[in-house]
Design a protein around this nucleic acid. Structure first.
Lengths: 258, 258
DNA sequence: CGGCCGTAGTGGTCGGACCACTGGGCTGGC
DNA sequence: GCCAGCCCAGTGGTCCGACCACTACGGCCG
């Protein structure tokens, strides 16, 4: 509405486009895509080739921009992009650093998928979670240490000791997180973390908890814990699959009757 | 080195910081994080709440920036961030649009994880892939249509008809992609796509193919195809798990002797 | 010797100018 | 009357330069 007259037609052609003035002997100047996109790829490539180690500090934005022959603005966009991907980390006043490139760093964006999905895709996500969660639980049954098992048990009892839905949800998350951690596959744990993100579960639970879900959930969790304590991978796998599958089936039924 | 004298100490304090000058009755002005980060969250929230439908066009960068009370530069960083996440899509000269928010759009970034992972995490990724791939193959065995099966078969024969590693790799990818598509879970297919990204597999294969891997791969693929044709989910699951597990075990052994 | 403080340096933000591309309306030829 | 082509307003892409907010380091003072 309040779009004033831009008057951008009085363009004096300024000699600004000498951005690639210097000699470029490359057979293909690789003018593909935007300069920002190119910068993203180049930084990614530098990391992939080992020129940038995890935790290492990068040159300043100004230097990086000069190095790749682009403006600081474009370089900042590239850095921002790699920041949200969990590849880089910018510390105000200090510098830009490569993250540890661990599963948790890179898979944080996975939560966005869960947050923005709805309808049929929620069921698909739960199906993926069922597969991974059951596997992780089975692995945990074989590898879990007594200390880790105690943590799991702690969340189980804490979850049974309260009626506050918020607290129950928190301990529910921690329960599964502890199991995933005990499975020994950080990547799988990180994916499951994303698939169980706070907003995602809260959204599903909003209606699910109105059923007799609390009692059922407690029973299922007890069964999972029992299988872990018994070091029975197959029982653990079955219990976990049934647990997630329960919610999955309920959600599948909800799709037809909004 | 060639860092010239910035001379940025002659700062005349300009009245520029009236960015939040207007009345803000919120109990907490939510000054958390950077303005760009806030913009990202706000746009994400708009989409999550349904204010922005998939495919819909957003206001211009300039309008959006004005709406949220930030500069166009910061807004552009936010847009760029959401672009790399597969949430938004910018078309030069036309406008900014919300993507279809399908699994493929949002999980495209998953490939970055595979590209930047190395060492033990590669094994973890293969373990995840083994779990998902075997499940997807089992599902496909139960649901695949004759047309889809024909496509799978086509890639199998094409892969057996050439000796060009590049071409074999391409058909190998397409073979598994076709199976994943037949499983009926787009989300799972998208994740598997990321786990089988071109650069990822090329890196692993670089050494793997020197063994007698070609013949073995062909045999395993034939076994998978046979299970699909026989509509035998359990056999398909086993064949797929063995196929991925083969590479997984080889890679596991490689870790000790670089 | 230790804490305080100044300051250089770095990421964060802003505003404006200009470039490159798209799309629809206008014009002119057929 | 219709279609092709041109024209141009609008929009994303890029660049620049200034300034703000924060960090880290080192010298100064008690």
């Amino acid at each position: 509405m309040e779009q004033v007259s831009h008057a951008q037609s009085e363009q004096v052609f300024h000699a600004q486009s000498e951005q690639v003035s210097h000699a470029e002997k490359e057979p293909v100047p690789a003018q593909k895509g935007t300069v920002t996109q190119r910068a993203i790829e180049q930084i990614k490539a530098m990391i992939a080739e080992g020129l940038l180690e995890p935790g290492q500090r990068l040159p300043t934005e100004r230097d990086l921009a000069a190095q790749l022959g682009i403006s600081r603005s474009s370089m900042r966009e590239a850095i921002r992009a790699l920041t949200v991907l969990g590849v880089l980390e910018a510390r105000h006043g200090s510098g830009i650093y490569v993250t540890q490139l661990e599963a948790g760093d890179l898979l944080e964006t996975f939560g966005v998928v869960a947050d923005l999905s709805r309808g049929p895709r929620l069921v698909e996500l739960l199906e993926v979670r069922r597969v991974l969660e059951s596997t992780a639980t089975a692995l945990a049954a074989a590898r879990i240490t007594p200390e880790q098992l105690a943590v799991v048990e702690g969340h189980l009892t804490a979850m049974n000791a309260t009626d506050d839905p918020e607290e129950i949800l928190a301990h529910d998350l921690a329960f599964h997180r502890a199991i995933a951690a005990a499975a020994g596959n950080d990547t799988m744990a990180a994916i499951l973390e994303g698939l169980s993100s706070r907003t995602f579960r809260a959204r599903v639970w909003r209606g699910y908890q109105q059923e007799d879900a609390f009692a059922r959930t407690r029973r299922e969790h007890a069964r999972i814990h029992g299988a872990l304590a018994a070091r029975d991978p197959e029982a653990a796998r079955a219990a976990a699959a049934a647990h997630v599958g329960e919610v999955e089936q309920w959600l599948r039924g909800q799709l037809g009757s909004p």
